[in-house]
Write a protein that binds this DNA or RNA. Structure first.
Lengths: 336, 336
DNA sequence: CTGTATTGCGCAATCGATTGTGCCACTGTA
DNA sequence: TACAGTGGCACAATCGATTGCGCAATACAG
């Protein structure tokens, strides 16, 4: 009862049957192998009594399957990615796959190394979330025949399921402008965009959506209305301060590219009188529960985590990896 | 070059050597096996050209090792746990172990099932974070000889590394009281505690710390000063509203048990005039970047993620699993 | 009572990497 | 020339589960 790891051979001896019988009983295909019900009972009993735990290394080796599905994400410590991880686990478990979630810290080298290791454990599928270099990951996966899907950031060598950043930004910008009130100052009577990195895909698309909404409403937009100052809070803080100085006050509407940037923006806004904040329409691409509880109204875009992963798993389920497409999932607008 | 998975046997054929030679070269112990440098070069070249990827199922089976270290957490989608996940990966990688992080949704059955599966993949160590039933997990692990450590919530069958909830709560309560200003009303001239579940270990310890701080300062505490209303934001919202009605205003100091509860509290506070908020000292056990940016000052306790995991890995590194202890790590007080 | 079916299960090969052991060919020494 | 001492590598067993195949025993038909 209390020996170290028991194997099917140990159980076989105890039950006076062969290892193949034990195997068949425990993995459920004993009927096809015409094992007697009584024998099965006996084996199951002994297995339970000894808390037999299958060795999936051995099983996987023989079956050439691991039961593992991997997902790489940039960070765990992030609302969006951790929500994806949570939902990923749910969907994987529903399919009786065992989920592996690993972060790669936005480091292209670590991305490749991680994927290589995942493959060495013989994962059967891979979700590539927010990868810096998704096409390199695709190359490695293809080389080893790993079916995979990009999520959040698109690649050209595998189907990608991404947020409709353009649409979301456009909607948010439109809503902001619609809710905002005209300001007498020429420079302040505009919508401004803050945060992100202009060369990044998602930021780019959001800027495009923002730009088109501004165009539609005001007919023109100046480059100065967009400050892709970077992702960090400090940078957004500084950028907001700069903007405030330059246009001598808050603008009519402010579009913040992410919650991290919002943190910095709010840090600066706290230094202003509440009355001044009331005259600007604030919006943030991405959602945070605490942001909804700030002292001024804020509109947010919430990415559709369930939609993104639902679509990704639909592709995996259907096995249609051949035609490389980009699927855009609309986010949700939230008014706080 | 472009065949399916290559094995050491394929490489052996190509290099005109035996599989054992290939194995020795690739896993680095070729010197001990006196393989010629030239042979090693050749093998490495061929392996690289074919992007050979070791099969860790086979390797692990033979070596009776997996290179895996597991960690179960209640949720991914949570600041504290996702921060733990991030740091866990870092520490695991530094040790050349491959980290597996899986959530168990605070479900005791899922905890056991998950651990069982992790063991079937032959993880070598396990960190049990915030488990509902750590001792049952310990029993399973011990049965299979898996070295493990409890984190965040203590158990009695394995060493536990937890936050010093008592100390943190006491410090926070003391700081709140010290910073608060006397109020004329008898009921309002007190510190109140909101959130959590009194039967849960962490909440219990925090209430104790809070209670002792209140005792030390005021000499007495009434049961009504503690409302362990539950974890959810709505419950905290309602509880705060109730308190406000009952004591006809905000108290001198308010101690909120978690950031989730804080969300609810703030939701209610938003309905009050800013001037009223200024007269109450707010504190929150747990930290959130956005909370530091609220419109009123808030003191927070930030759990020491690095400290917790550092200690947990110290135990793993030293292999001292025999003496079961509880190690408390002091959190950090933050003044926003 | 012989012959065909069916039931129930064991044998042995296999997955891919690792590792203890041993063999052959040299080199150097006496 | 003989023999010990290496250097360089191959052989084959092994890890634990799976699975194609086949054999013995019983059931049943004719």
């Amino acid at each position: 009862m209390k020996k170290g790891k028991s194997t099917i051979y140990d159980l076989a001896q105890l039950a006076n049957v062969s290892a193949s019988t034990v195997s068949a009983v425990l993995n459920g295909n004993w009927k096809q192998r015409r094992i007697a019900e009584a024998t099965a009972q006996k084996v199951r009993g002994i297995a339970a009594a000894h808390q037999y735990n299958i060795n999936r290394q051995a099983s996987g080796l023989r079956k050439n399957k691991s039961g593992l599905i991997g997902m790489i994400i940039p960070l765990h410590d992030n609302r969006f990615f951790s929500a994806l991880a949570q939902q990923f686990e749910k969907l994987a478990r529903e399919r009786h796959w065992y989920p592996l979630v690993v972060s790669t810290l936005r480091d292209p080298a670590l991305e490749l190394e991680t994927v290589d290791t995942l493959i060495s454990y013989r994962i059967e599928y891979l979700l590539v979330v927010g990868a810096t270099d998704p096409d390199s990951v695709s190359r490695v996966c293809s080389r080893h025949g790993i079916a995979h899907v990009n999520v959040d950031l698109p690649g050209t060598k595998a189907t990608s399921v991404i947020s409709d950043n353009y649409w979301g930004a456009q909607q948010l910008a439109e809503a902001l402008i619609a809710r905002s009130t005209p300001v007498r100052s020429k420079h302040r009577d505009k919508a401004y965009f803050i945060g992100g990195v202009a060369s990044d895909y998602a930021t780019r698309r959001r800027i495009d959506g923002f730009t088109d909404a501004v165009h539609a409403r005001f007919g023109a937009m100046e480059p100065a209305q967009v400050d892709a100052c970077g992702y960090e809070a400090e940078l957004a803080d500084a950028a907001t301060r700069r903007l405030y100085r330059r246009i001598r006050g808050l603008p009519r509407a402010l579009f913040v590219n992410s919650t991290i940037a919002l943190e910095g923006v709010v840090r600066f806004l706290k230094t202003l009188p509440a009355e001044e904040l009331g005259r600007c329409a604030f919006g943030c691409y991405d959602w945070d529960p605490f942001a909804s509880v700030l002292s001024f109204p804020l509109q947010m875009v919430r990415q559709n985590v369930d939609g993104l992963l639902g679509e990704a798993f639909r592709i995996i389920d259907s096995g249609s990896f051949a035609d490389v497409r980009v699927i855009e999932i609309k986010p949700e607008l939230l008014f706080a």
